[in-house]
């Protein structure tokens, strides 16, 4: 299973077509996103960066099926997930790793990571447990299977959550600033851990962050967004070779890419700041 089932090798191509999102259309009429279009090929690691309140989390919530777009449509592998006249629903083909973590505190780690596949009836509990143990071991988490989330460190929790998401075998993994609350050192360990799992499974990844360096280090492509209403300001193709490790951050190419990204996003961040935007999360 670690090599990826046939289902995950194909599929997961995402097409976001002129999607717009307006909150409170009758009242405040806040335009979070406007005419946003983006194609993410199957298996690509796509990072979206932008200033606070640019609508990146809104976009992720729409992909996940928690919110509906006001206009446009979202298509995955020729199946319309959301659009005019189609109410979207969350599904196991698009698993989210949440900003503040969403493991069930009253269940053990093992239960948390196996409940998805068992719930879907895809794996027997025994099989799910074997897969879970293998993947937990892969990210350096042997022996914590029977602990409760409350007993783990922040870095361990994030790893458990990513393992849970992968075991659900989504076509696309949606990550909403998952490492935001971590210290710099833990963060860099998490980055390498995530990349290792990505190289292993090659799922499509949609990664929202406001950390440029993180975006460049992880992604195949960085989408820089404008301040609200969110539109694409610039797309940066990250041509750094994989597998990547942390030394790449000090390479010349990384520096160039980062400058390019900073140039794109600085004005927007300033605009957002001057507009007095509060955190939109």
């Amino acid at each position: 299973m670690l090599q990826g089932s046939p289902r995950s090798e194909t599929g997961g191509a995402l097409s976001i077509r002129s999607v717009g999102k307006v909150y409170d259309p009758g009242g405040d009429h806040v335009v979070a996103l406007e005419q946003f279009s983006l194609e993410i090929p199957s298996g690509q690691f796509c990072a979206v960066v932008g200033p606070s309140g640019c609508g990146k989390t809104t976009l992720l919530n729409m992909l996940a099926g928690f919110e509906s777009p006001t206009s446009g449509e979202i298509v995955m592998d020729d199946e319309i997930l959301a659009g005019a006249g189609k109410r979207l629903a969350p599904g196991a083909d698009r698993m989210v790793v949440f900003q503040q973590g969403a493991l069930f505190p009253w269940k053990t780690v093992l239960w948390n990571v196996t409940c998805g596949p068992v719930l879907q009836g895809r794996l027997s509990p025994d099989r799910a447990e074997a897969d879970a143990r293998a993947m937990l071991a892969r990210v350096g988490l042997e022996g914590i299977e029977h602990q409760y989330p409350g007993e783990l460190s922040a870095g361990m929790l994030r790893r458990v959550e990513i393992v849970r998401a992968l075991l659900i075998e989504p076509k696309i993994l949606l990550l909403d600033e998952p490492f935001r609350a971590l210290d710099a050192l833990t963060k860099s360990v998490m980055h390498e851990c995530l990349l290792e799992l990505y190289d292993l499974t090659r799922k499509t990844v949609f990664f929202v962050t406001h950390d440029l360096e993180e975006a460049i280090f992880l992604a195949d492509r960085v989408v820089a967004m404008t301040a609200r209403p969110g539109r694409i300001k610039k797309m940066i193709k990250v041509d750094l070779p994989r597998p990547r490790d942390y030394r790449i951050v000090s390479s010349e190419r990384f520096g160039q890419l980062k400058r390019e990204a900073v140039d794109a996003i600085y004005d927007e961040a300033k605009k957002a700041f001057e507009a007095g935007e509060r955190e939109f999360a």
Binding site: G65, P90, G91, A92, V96, F98, A102, F104, G116, L119
Partner: peptide, 10 residues
């Protein structure tokens, strides 16, 4: 978030 996670899992 827990409710959303559960809905995502089906």
């Amino acid at each position: 978030s827990l409710l959303r996670a559960a809905r995502s899992m089906g």
